[in-house]
Design a protein around this nucleic acid. Sequence first.
DNA 1: TTTCATGCAAATGATTTGCAGTGTT
DNA 2: AACACTGCAAATCATTTGCATGAAA
Lengths: 143, 143
Amino acid sequence: MPRQRDGERVLRQLSARGFRETEARRAIVETILHKDGQFTARQLHEELEPWDVGRATVFRTLDLLVELGVLNRLHTDERCSSYVVCADQHHHHLVCERCGTVQEVSDPRIERAVRAMAVDVGFRAREHRLEIVGICDQCQDVS
Amino acid sequence: MPRQRDGERVLRQLSARGFRETEARRAIVETILHKDGQFTARQLHEELEPWDVGRATVFRTLDLLVELGVLNRLHTDERCSSYVVCADQHHHHLVCERCGTVQEVSDPRIERAVRAMAVDVGFRAREHRLEIVGICDQCQDVS
DNA sequence: TTTCATGCAAATGATTTGCAGTGTT
DNA sequence: AACACTGCAAATCATTTGCATGAAA
């Protein structure tokens, strides 16, 4: 089970890399850490209305957090990116097509299989991204 | 090794599903089948200039072909989709970050690992998408 | 004070849509 | 003749940029 993120820590990570701790960034970090599941830039921007954070700042900060490794960008939707707060380790995403929940998993079997396949075809794999779409535990019970 | 596509067959698939065989679609199908690697809608549209195929038609046809299973949409690039002609079977993509070549692979070990993981966490997986980014065989030799 | 970050509004760029004319069946 | 398909131009919509102002270091 990957450990949870903490707002303070993320902000410290920021300044450690020479970025500044600002109102806007504090608001964004706090907001996303209290989310579960995926969200789009637009949604986040709307939630931040009380803090008057500009659209551009939302996008800029999302980029920053992706680069920092705090957020992961998903490509499930055609038209726009979605983001999820992600744990520290490498992992994959289970996207529930019913409730939209995104679950993180890491599984050594998958890593091993990917590595083995790459070796077989002579490909030097630097990174990989696996998205699994289906129906989650919860939603199966409901149906 | 997945079998190659054939223009005639694709067009027949189209009419079999009630779509019409038109000039524009013929031009598009022929053009993409002669491509290797990925391409964007814009690139395709440019290549089709001599045939006077409208931008909208390019997008509409790409959608159609994706739905038909002839093309696969990649999400490697943030700003726009890329497409690759894909073989009939389920497979994954190895994207070379040096030359941009996209190689298709299917590997039972990966399928098995994904299935096993899904079972473990109680997720009913409907589909999955794996993109592996790295350096291909060829480019490793060159360096 | 020196830089970095912000909000705004305008710009960009991919994709979509309305529509009237055209080609397929 | 029906009606799907097309090209065009205008419309959308997410994301980016230029810039003057405000806030952190």
